[in-house]
Simulated assay, not measured.
Amino acid sequence: MCNTCIASIVYCIVQTINYIFLIFVPSETSDVACQWRGYFGYMSISAATYSYLIQAISRLFFSKFSTKYPWLITFKTHYYLILTHWIVVLIIPLSSVITKDIYFRPGLLCWVPLKIKNGSKRAEMILNTVNDKRDLEVFRNIVILLSIYITGGIPTLIFLLFTIEISYLAGIVTFTLAVTVEKICTILLDRELRQVVWNIIFSRNRVTPFENTITLTRHRVNFRRS
């Protein structure tokens, strides 16, 4: 989980920097710099995504192989897992800087561009307007999530700087609490995800198990016969 938190923080920082360049530093038009921003953008996404795979592998080791292969649950094994994870996510997006697929485009993030055939200028203008609104919304969400992670790590930072014992104890709580709050905010900030969760929690259609319905019907029939 700690590796996932670090990967999430890296993702938030990288995407925040990318949006700062997009919104506040439009004068930076270098294709090389844009390629590197695209590289770190794809790298941060891969890091956050594959960190959940590392979590799944770790839990598999603890639940299935801890008795037969106790060395799989040691810190050394997990250090190798984390090291492999970061090596892989650093290699995956290398094509962003090796090829020329990413180049500077005014008002757009440094991603591999989507090629639209037979598109009109009006459709392109509408698409750019929608992208601008979406970029601002995503930037706001990333800043909120990054602030949550930074706040959760403040007690640990205080402990590392001043060696205050109560800060260490508070850091254990706030770090886990920050992850929980981040997940809740992710649901609240995503309109579609929020709607799905709302429908699940407040669903009025109660599902009756099929087997229980058959059993109840049989009891009623037997009661009438008797």
Rank of each mutant, 00 (worst) to 15 (best):
L145Q: 10
L146Y: 09
S147E: 04
I148C: 01
I148M: 12
I148R: 12
Y149S: 11
Y149T: 03
Y149D: 09
I150L: 15
I150M: 14
T151I: 10
T151S: 08
T151W: 06
G152F: 08
I154F: 04
P155T: 14
P155L: 12
T156W: 05
T156N: 06
L157N: 10
F159M: 04
L160W: 05
L160Q: 07
L161N: 13
L161F: 12
F162G: 04
F162E: 11
T163D: 08
T163R: 13
T163Q: 08
I164G: 03
I164P: 06
E165S: 05
E165Y: 03
I166F: 11
I166A: 12
S167G: 09
S167I: 04
Y168G: 08
Y168L: 14
Y168P: 11
L169G: 00
L169R: 12
L169P: 01
L169A: 07
G171W: 02
G171Q: 05
I172C: 14
I172G: 15
V173P: 09
T174K: 14
F175P: 12
F175N: 11
A178H: 05
V179R: 08
V179D: 08
T180H: 13
T180P: 11
V181A: 06
V181D: 03
V181F: 08
E182L: 06
K183R: 14
I184G: 02
C185H: 11
T186F: 00
I187V: 14
L189A: 04
D190T: 11
D190R: 09
R191I: 10
R191H: 14
E192T: 14
E192W: 05
E192F: 09
R194E: 02
R194Y: 03
Q195R: 06
Q195E: 02
Q195W: 03
V196F: 03
V196I: 13
W198Y: 10
W198Q: 00
W198R: 03
N199I: 01
N199D: 11
N199H: 02
I200D: 07
I200S: 02
I200P: 01
I201R: 05
I201Y: 00
I201Q: 00
F202L: 07
S203F: 01
S203K: 03
S203R: 06
S203D: 05
S203Y: 01
N205Q: 14
N205M: 09
N205V: 12
R206I: 12
R206Q: 09
V207R: 14
V207P: 12
V207K: 15
T208I: 15
P209M: 02
P209V: 09
F210H: 09
F210T: 15
F210R: 13
F210C: 01
F210G: 07
E211F: 06
N212K: 15
N212F: 03
T213K: 12
